[in-house]
């Protein structure tokens, strides 16, 4: 089999699996006449998506807003923290334990406290999501900034490179693959953080997100709407992951395979 056919098959096969699963799911629901409030068929979910379209889209917008803002904050703040910590061994030794404490404490356990402490709901949601998304940015950037080829470093030093030249032309490019991998992981965690925070906050109204829609659908036994909201969360995650992978490939593709 030539490589192009193999690549085409790699695309077609998962699509076929998906279509078959949907077909069997639909057929089983109809055949055994499973009530919609127990387990909806794909067609029921599509119908619900359509019927609740405006409301779900609004919720999607909220969740996406929290996710993207926390991702942005995580990347900016996380990079800044890593750049400061990498300056001195002692600095890193003193603060790293706290970064790790932050990481190992489950966000769902901290979220209620944050919701209580922070008045503005959207701010509290962003804070929760940032708390978990920032860790991979910090740790990957730290590793990346430390992973400079010693041969190249010797070469730069021999040519009397300045500190700024070392940073811009050696350290930052060397760190880029690890950094981008960290940002990709952070994008997934920001979504997780946003959804968890919404569950805990349980706020409706203008800042109601997809997680709130899932909660509400549960209370109202509107299972198709629950699936529809879940579907939108999954699609958001996939689009984020795809987008990040694309950016990574554009930035590093030709010279290095992205770190996985």
């Amino acid at each position: 089999m030539n490589p192009r056919n193999a690549a085409r098959l790699g695309l077609i096969a998962p699509v076929l699996v998906g279509l078959c699963t949907l077909g069997i799911w639909q057929a089983a629901c109809r055949l055994f006449a499973i009530p919609v409030y127990l387990f909806p068929a794909p067609s029921d979910i599509v119908a619900s998506l359509y019927a609740n379209g405006p409301m779900l889209l609004h919720a999607l917008g909220s969740t996406l807003y929290v996710t993207l803002v926390s991702l942005l904050v995580s990347v900016l703040l996380g990079t800044a923290i890593a750049v400061v910590l990498v300056q001195h061994r002692l600095l890193q030794a003193s603060f790293m334990p706290y970064v790790i404490i932050l990481q190992v404490t489950p966000i769902a356990a901290v979220a209620p406290l944050i919701i209580v402490l922070v008045k503005t709901t959207s701010m509290a949601l962003v804070l929760c999501a940032t708390l978990i998304a920032i860790f991979p940015v910090i740790s990957n950037t730290l590793i990346g900034l430390g992973a400079v080829d010693p041969g190249l470093e010797a070469y730069f030093r021999m040519h009397k490179a300045t500190r700024v030249q070392m940073l811009l032309r050696l350290r930052i490019p060397s760190a880029l693959p690890m950094f981008m991998a960290g940002v990709r992981i952070a994008s997934g965690l920001a979504l997780v953080g946003a959804v968890v925070a919404e569950f805990v906050a349980g706020t409706g109204g203008n800042s109601a997100g997809l997680a709130y829609e899932i909660l509400q659908s549960g209370f109202q036994m509107d299972i198709p709407r629950m699936f529809a909201a879940l579907f939108l969360i999954t699609v958001t995650g996939l689009v984020l992951h795809g987008g990040m992978t694309t950016i990574e490939r554009l930035l590093l593709g030709r010279w290095m395979r992205p770190v996985t």
Binding site: G151, A154, Y155, M158, R169, W255
Partner: peptide, 25 residues
């Protein structure tokens, strides 16, 4: 000085690698 390893910057094109000592100056 030429080292035992090529010590090229993997993120830079060949021409940019070769220009490095001039850039540093």
């Amino acid at each position: 000085f030429v080292f035992q390893d090529p010590t090229l910057m993997p993120w830079a094109r060949v021409e940019d690698n070769v220009r490095l000592p001039l850039d540093l100056e």
